[in-house]
């Protein structure tokens, strides 16, 4: 965990958007296997930072420098907590980082749905795509289940061929049950 937070912090400081995006995806897949909510939170943070570092109106804002320094400090505190295996402190520092992200996003974003809410949905959809159930994926990142399902509906996740029983066969069963 400390190494992951450190990698995230370094990628953020050097504005490596692609690395942040990849970390977000990799971390949530690992979080799905381990049911690790803190790792899932780090994944959401990675996604949010990726989104924010790709937005010129945020990066060019005079307040961004201070906010990004604060985020880096919080991530460092989270890393120290992880090194000490202090779960409560780790959780607190991750929530503080999220608080900073939400604050700057609320101030500068053009969208009604903030980047943190989007991040929870996006990362939960990756957890669902990697095999968790809808409820389990939503719980992992604290995403809203309805929004998660709608988001998944707009992706190609359900077009992966996994079902052995096709629609006609299920329908035939339903006819037999009811008629």
């Amino acid at each position: 965990m400390p190494k992951r937070i450190e990698s995230l912090s370094k990628a953020f400081q050097s504005h490596k958007a692609y690395d942040l995006k990849k970390m977000g995806r990799d971390y949530v897949e690992d979080a799905a296997v381990d049911s690790d909510k803190d790792l899932a939170a780090i994944s959401v943070i990675a996604y949010c930072l990726y989104k924010m570092t790709t937005k010129n109106h945020i990066m060019n804002n005079p307040r961004w420098k201070i906010v990004s320094q604060t985020i880096t400090k919080k991530l460092n505190s989270a890393k120290i907590a992880a090194e000490k295996n202090n779960q409560n402190e780790l959780h607190t520092q991750l929530q503080n980082t999220i608080g900073e992200i939400e604050f700057i996003d609320n101030e500068l974003s053009n969208y009604a749905r903030n980047v943190y809410e989007k991040g929870k949905i996006k990362q939960a959809s990756t957890a669902y795509a990697s095999g968790l159930s809808l409820s389990q994926a939503a719980a992992l990142t604290d995403a809203n289940k309805r929004e998660l399902q709608e988001y998944i509906g707009a992706t190609r996740i359900h077009d992966e061929s996994l079902d052995k029983i096709e629609m006609q066969e299920r329908l035939e069963k339903l006819r037999r049950i009811i008629e």
Partner: peptide, 28 residues
Amino acid sequence: KLIDLGEAEALALLKETGSKTMMIDERT
């Protein structure tokens, strides 16, 4: 852990009611 208590409750209700049919749109 692949499924959550939400899905577990629907399956538990199936057992409780003796119903043999469940409508579920999620995949896992």
